[in-house]
Amino acid sequence: MTSDEAIVRTEKLSRIYRQGTVEVHALRAVDFACRRGEFVALAGPSGSGKSTLLNQLGTLDPPTSGRVTIAGREVTRLGRAAAARFRLAHIGFVFQAFNLLPVLTAYENAEYTLLLQGVSAAKRRAIVLPLLERVGLGAMQHRRPHELSGGQQQRVAVVRAIAPKPAFVLADEPTANLDSQSSASLLDLLEDLNRSDGLTLVLASHDAQVIARARRVVRLRDGSIVGDEEQSPT
């Protein structure tokens, strides 16, 4: 696969939720593609379908119709166990909150996906410690989540997401629970990872500060893509 090829692609992707007798069209025939190394922001108001699209890209939720292809493999109809294994191998996640396991230390949380992948302890250490140093948490590796600030917790979550070198990282409102300084700091980190490491990033947010940092903004409204533009991050 060349850098121009889409690492993740959706075709005519629809997701309909049923709430009693009412059908809610969360996504309507969405065609979306993201190339390796892109930093894409899915923007839109609440209920526009950005989180739903993120869940589809992350194989967290099966579509009602349409196709999702990741790293050249169609993942639309994967079973739950197969989808979980696929996520573990190819996708990194950073969520809005409750991102870390409270009983594990920062280091243990950061190495958790590598552990699930069966990477040896020595190799995990060799991968995770430099990353924790890089995000400024080397000295806090033994702290539990409740001993870390929200921004620090999100940094640990970022390390966990990137440690296995996934095809791309999905982040759902990663700054929603952070103050502006922590948000800026986290965005600096994500931007740096994208620029210097070529990390492919797709994040969903309605925060203008986040959207401004992305190099491409895909706007959604009522489950449809209504805009897709490249931009120079501020």
Partner: peptide
């Protein structure tokens, strides 16, 4: 529930 959902999202299979 939420924490177990997180594990699942990270790639922990239902069996695990």
């Amino acid at each position: 529930v939420r924490e177990l959902g997180l594990l699942s999202a990270l790639g922990v299979t239902p069996a695990r």
